[in-house]
Computed example of a mutant assay.
Amino acid sequence: MEKERALIFQGGWPGHRPEEVARMLERWLTDEGMEVEVADTLDCLLDREKLRDTDLVIPNWTMGRIGDEALKNLTEAVERGTGLAGLHGGMGDAFREATEFQYMVGGQFVAHPGGDSVAYRVRIADRSHPITEGLSDFDVVSELYYMHVDPAIRVLAETTAHNGAAMPVAWVKSHGEGRVFYCSLGHTPDVLRIEEVKTMVVRGMKWASRRGKERRG
C-alpha cells in the first residue's frame, strides 16, 4: 500500500523556530510510517493537483501573507478531503489577513497575557475522542493562547484563561470533506516534547490525514 503523504511548509516569524519544529514533526510522522515533505516556501501551495493528492498538510508559518492562488488551492484541497493540522502560531496565527484561512482552521490567536512563562493546567475536555483517549490532565509553563474560536469546533482540551473563561487548547472540526486538527501549544520545541502534548499532536495529525478516516474515529 502506498504511504500516507504529508506536506509541512515552514517559515514566517522566526521566533517560533519553524525549521526546528518542522523537522521534529517530520521525524515523528516518519516514525508513524508517513512520507513527509518539508517545504521552505509557500510556492509549494501553487501545485493544485499535488495538494489534492496529499493526505495531510501542516502549516508551520507564523504570520506572513499568503497569495490568493495559494490560499484557494489549499482550501479547495481540504474541502476535497486533504487533512489540515498544526499547532501554536504556525497555524493559529498564520496569515492574519486571510480570514478564509482562519475560518478553515476554526480559530485565530488574539493575545497571550503574561508572556511565555504562564503556568497553567491543560484539562482533557473530551476523553471519548481517539486523539485524547487515555490522556490525563497536565501542566505546562508557556504562552497561554487567548483565541477567537469558531463555535462549531469540537474541543478536546482546554484551560482557564486570565479572565476566568474556559479557553480551548486543542480542537477538531470538519471543512468540507477534510478533517482539521489544531493545538495551541508549541511556543518552544520543549513544550512539544511533553509526553501528553506529543501524543496529542501525533494522534491529531494522523486523525486529520485523509486516511485517518479509514482508522478508528
Rank of each mutant, 00 (worst) to 15 (best):
V197E: 02
T41S: 15
R121V: 01
D126Y: 03
H148E: 14
F95N: 12
E143N: 05
R203Y: 05
L74N: 05
L25P: 03
G90V: 12
D137E: 01
F138H: 01
K213H: 14
D31L: 14
T132R: 03
Y120S: 01
P113N: 05
A119G: 05
V149H: 13
S117I: 02
V21F: 06
A165I: 11
I124C: 00
G204D: 04
C183K: 05
E2S: 13
Y120C: 03
R52H: 15
G164F: 00
A165C: 12
D53P: 04
E26L: 14
V169A: 07
M147P: 03
S184R: 02
L56N: 00
G64T: 11
R27Q: 15
W61V: 08
M200Q: 00
G164P: 09
P18C: 10
P14N: 07
C44E: 08
E196C: 01
D126S: 03
H162F: 10
E195D: 12
D55P: 07
V110K: 12
H16C: 09
A111W: 01
V201H: 01
V36Q: 03
G106S: 09
A94V: 06
V110I: 15
R193N: 05
E158M: 07
M205I: 04
E4I: 09
I153S: 04
E35F: 07
P130M: 00
M147S: 14
G64R: 11
F95L: 11
G33A: 11
D139V: 11
A166M: 11
D137C: 04
R80H: 12
S184P: 04
L135Q: 00
N60C: 03
H16D: 09
G164D: 09
G164C: 08
P14A: 12
K206I: 14
H88G: 02
M167D: 09
D53W: 07
G134P: 00
D40L: 13
P14Y: 11
R48N: 04
L25Y: 09
E37M: 02
T41Y: 13
V140M: 10
E37Q: 12
M63T: 14
T30Q: 10
R80T: 12
P18Y: 14
R96W: 13
M200L: 11
E20T: 15
S209Y: 09
T99A: 13
V141M: 00
Y145R: 00
V140W: 06
F101A: 06
V202N: 05
A39M: 09
L45P: 02
D31G: 13
N60G: 03
R123Y: 05
P130T: 05
M34L: 15
A22F: 08
R179F: 02
E35M: 13
R23G: 00
S128T: 14
E97V: 12
I58T: 04
E69P: 01
H88V: 07
G12N: 11
V172H: 09
P130I: 02
D53S: 13
L7G: 02
A170R: 00
R193F: 01
G186H: 07
V169P: 08
G92A: 14
G64C: 11
F181K: 05
V149G: 03
S184Y: 00
C183A: 06
S174C: 08
M63Y: 15
G90W: 10
F109L: 11
G164K: 06
T99L: 15
S117F: 01
D68R: 14
C44I: 10
L87F: 10
V172Q: 05
H148W: 08
E76K: 07
M167I: 09
R5Y: 06
V155F: 01
A157M: 10
P168H: 06
N163D: 15
R210M: 07
A111K: 05
D43T: 10
